[in-house]
């Protein structure tokens, strides 16, 4: 039995919570298996502090590829922490968005990992990272065409079949657009969700970054998505640059605290998604554990306010 910190308000489990007919509250719970709470990315520098302090967070997320090793401290600490926290495994190497067939070896490594540490959730990206046997270690953009949509759906189907579970697909942060693209990103994502039955990992920072970078409205972007299919939200920090014309170019750095504008957009997103598991994503300039836990707490408070709002809304 897991002894997860009980951050999910008990009201959610009461008959009152059960009968709350608000579609935003009910829909995600059909496929969302992460606790409706805030989590943090698990970093080796925090292994011992987490075990010692067991802070009140709802789940931990790891990058799948970091744990595709035979043994050692990574598996040791992940196993021990998974006894206390729900686990989200987040892949960065499947190259689902690429035009090439998925790497069978990598799929097998993933199956092995998910057997060893059965996670409460697995997610991947709408991006590509490998081509012709080379791995680029970045989430690269794809053209949004009918042709590519078909390929991406086949890839998602293949992954869900191999892993025997529904996965979440994350919206990317992008810096360029393809002249060949004929489908807006939100429509592309909606179609993948529709055709494959996968869920969405809504990265609110990625939405903000991409919308600034491409002159789009971030609220419109979110409301164009099937928000009832969001199984997890990511919050992260960005860095600032400018493009060749001097326009702001935001970079999804995962190296800074979540920006105020992203917190505001998160509050807006929660109105559409309902309360949903939310991750503070930090991969660079990793601060001491209490700082991350503090950011998670801030997300947790926003989440709980949505739980309250959802319950108070009259039944439809």
């Amino acid at each position: 039995m897991k002894t997860q910190p009980n951050l999910v308000p008990t009201r959610l489990a009461t008959p009152a919570g059960e009968t709350a007919a608000h579609h935003n509250l009910k829909a995600p719970s059909r496929f969302n298996t992460l606790p409706v709470s805030a989590g943090i990315g698990l970093k080796p520098e925090h292994y011992q502090a987490l075990l010692d302090q067991l802070p009140e967070i709802g789940f931990l997320e790891v990058h799948a590829e970091n744990y595709m090793v035979a043994g050692g401290p990574y598996h040791h600490y992940l196993s021990r922490l998974h006894e206390h926290y729900a686990l989200s495994i987040h892949g960065v190497g499947l190259s689902i968005g690429g035009d090439a067939p998925l790497d069978e070896h990598h799929l097998s490594r993933l199956v092995t990992l998910l057997d060893r540490h059965p996670p409460e959730r697995f997610s991947e990206h709408l991006a590509w990272s490998s081509h012709s046997g080379e791995f680029f270690n970045d989430l690269l953009p794809l053209p949004y065409t009918e042709e590519r949509l078909k390929i991406v759906c086949e890839h998602v189907d293949q992954v869900q079949t191999r892993l025997k579970r529904q996965i979440l697909l994350e919206n990317p942060a992008t810096y360029v657009q393809f002249a060949a693209s004929s489908i807006p990103e939100t429509e592309f994502l909606s179609a993948v969700v529709e055709r494959t039955g996968c869920g969405l990992l809504l990265d609110v920072n990625n939405v903000y970054v991409s919308c600034i970078n491409h002159g789009l409205n971030s609220r419109d972007y979110i409301s164009a998505l099937p928000c009832n299919r969001v199984g997890e939200i990511h919050l992260a920090g960005f860095s600032r640059d400018t493009d060749a014309a001097g326009a702001p170019l935001l970079i999804d750095s995962h190296g800074a605290p979540v920006a105020d504008a992203v917190w505001n957009l998160y509050a807006y997103a929660l109105e559409l998604t309902g309360p949903v598991a939310t991750l503070i994503e930090r991969d660079n300039n990793i601060p001491p554990l209490p700082i991350l836990v503090g950011e998670a707490l801030r997300a947790q408070n926003l989440l709980l306010s949505r739980v309250d709002a959802a319950i108070e809304e009259p039944m439809l």
Binding site: D138, L140, Y175, V176, G215, A244, A245
Partner: peptide, 26 residues
């Protein structure tokens, strides 16, 4: 070829973000 930016700016500056991510992270 085949890349563009909404404001008509040279996409190379934008593409450099990917270039930098790949090289620097490795």
């Amino acid at each position: 070829a085949g890349l563009w930016a909404w404001n008509g700016s040279d996409p190379t500056t934008r593409f450099d973000v990917y270039r930098n991510n790949v090289i620097v992270s490795l």
